[in-house]
Design a protein around this nucleic acid. Structure first.
Lengths: 210, 210
DNA sequence: ATATCCTTGTGAAAAATTTCACAAAGATGA
DNA sequence: TCATCTTTGTGAAATTTTTCACAAGGATAT
């Protein structure tokens, strides 16, 4: 279990969790790799291979026990514990993420909110007081926070990232449409909403009109 | 130019555009594949190969003319023209996307907003009146809209997707954490915000403590 | 002109990822 | 207990994607 695991595998583990959640709610107890793969939109061999990176979770002739596989996946992804996060940039998107229930459900809690606008600092949102951005570094150190979420304009995203890293953050979820430069050992995940629409636009533009 | 182009290439084209935008603002006129790749966080051979799928855009010994490469990329991605979209599910995230300036800047305009809550229907947001969800199909047909954005809870996302497809939508940006089932020829892009945090959690959990 | 320098565009090699296909493990029923 | 059926886990093959490495094109300076 010491070799390199593809990022795409990790991405798919989350997708399997969503499908398992649903199956659990439907009252099912076990599921085969074929069913689960179908629900997740992947090849069943791939599903089995993805799981095989981490151990053996199934029973031949029967499939996977849904509850236990879910627990295992949660543990693998590290979402069996709580993560405290901070959110920088309380615009429309930032405010929406503060209120995004799925984060809390998955164990991610935003405990600090920061913005550089006078009109916002001091106000409360979702029970969290918005603080000045130059307070973030100290806050991160005191709270020992490892995850930061950036929802600022692109122009300031790099300096915000620098502050987060100085404060001890090891992983950044970046919604600003820039690629951030960070020290080795810091993980950045970019979510570029326009990019997603652009790829749809590409698809629509180049699709042969059947 | 009729072979299959990797989805990852398309994704990177958007990233190159962001970098080129910035370089343009900085007043630069040309850029080498090495510089642009560095800014975009990719290998320069990969950048050249990505572009090579679509033609020859550079000048040997000099590099790429920024403005013209940008225009070319916009054309390739189909964002040289305007796209009308609808947005279904006007919760926190949906409202934020309605107000997301980058969409409009990139040529994507939300022209219809839909929700199934009595308290929201009829209200105006960002100059757009929120309509009942059962009006969406007719609206799509009249306006000839090809792109739909789903920001509903997961439980209703599939039936919303079905309505969109019935209304003639060919591409869906789905923020609900479910994998949607759609007819062949319809493109779905999933954005699962929790998934992104989960992959960061995985990274933090399995990183060897240096 | 000519020589030198820079940088693209691209075959070929390498690496990574996905899919195939089946032996092995266990379930189920007679 | 034995035969049959189901489904996992996994080597091997196939495919896809990335990276290397360099010939060729064009700029620039003398």
């Amino acid at each position: 279990m010491t070799w390199k695991i593809p990022a795409s595998t990790i991405d798919r583990l989350s997708i399997y969790m969503r499908a398992l959640d649903k199956l659990g709610l439907d009252g099912m107890e076990t599921v085969s790799s074929l069913q689960l793969a179908e629900l997740s939109g992947v090849n069943s061999a791939q599903l089995r291979k993805d799981l095989a990176y981490f151990g053996q979770f199934g029973t031949r002739g029967r499939g996977y026990e849904i509850k236990s596989l879910l627990q295992n996946l949660r543990k693998i992804l590290g979402v069996d514990k709580k993560w405290k996060t901070v959110l920088i940039g309380i615009g429309n998107l930032g405010s929406a993420l503060l209120a995004y229930p799925e984060f809390k459900e998955e164990g991610f809690e935003v405990v600090g909110a920061f913005d550089n606008s006078f009109s916002k600092v001091g106000k409360k949102l979702e029970g969290i007081k918005i603080q000045e951005i130059d307070k973030v570094e100290a806050f991160l150190k005191i709270e020992k926070i490892k995850i930061g979420i950036i929802t600022t304009p692109a122009t300031v995203a790099q300096e915000v990232a620098d502050s987060l890293v100085k404060g001890g953050v090891k992983a950044i979820l970046n919604f600003a449409p820039v690629s951030l430069n960070v020290a080795k050992g810091i993980k950045v995940k970019n979510v570029d909403l326009s990019k997603e629409l652009e790829s749809l636009s590409y698809f629509l533009t180049h699709k042969k009109t059947v």
